[in-house]
Amino acid sequence: MNATALKSEDMVVSDFGTQEFVTVHVGDQILGVGVKEIHDVFALSELTPVPGARKEIAGVLNLRGRIVTAIDARVILGLPPRENGYAGVMAVGVEHKGESYGVLVDSVGEVLRLKDSEFEANPINMDAKWKNISRGIYRLEGKLLMTIDIEKLLVQSN
């Protein structure tokens, strides 16, 4: 529902040559996820670990009657694990091939409209783990925003 709302809004407001992103923080890095790809944003309450699953899979959870697989962006990006467990961690809800996933991040920021002219391809010296899921970089004032390719992130995870 959320997604359709965002989508239609996007259709109206969207200007030529700009893209909208939701910013999320993982470690010290700001990441951007395309607004259209995000279904919802939620905080974890309960998480069921899946023994034997790959390490980036934090577990499964119940989101309004749906079973959502939680994937930890920290692990995928090769950052140190969370010290305080998963309680209260923010997650970005996305969908891939009809399945629901939650990408666990440290915090969720705001929605930004970014100009295509500020976009740049991945620098060649970027960490392979990062490069694999990055669409490219936006030069913001004083900081860099890496855009995440959700599909790649999930496929990576697969």
């Binding site: 899946v50 023994p51 790959r54 899979i57 499964v60 697989t69 994937i71 399945e99």
Partner: peptide, 9 residues
């Protein structure tokens, strides 16, 4: 199960 965890037999 989602495909991400379906490999857990």
């Amino acid at each position: 199960l989602s495909s991400a965890v379906s490999d857990v037999k």
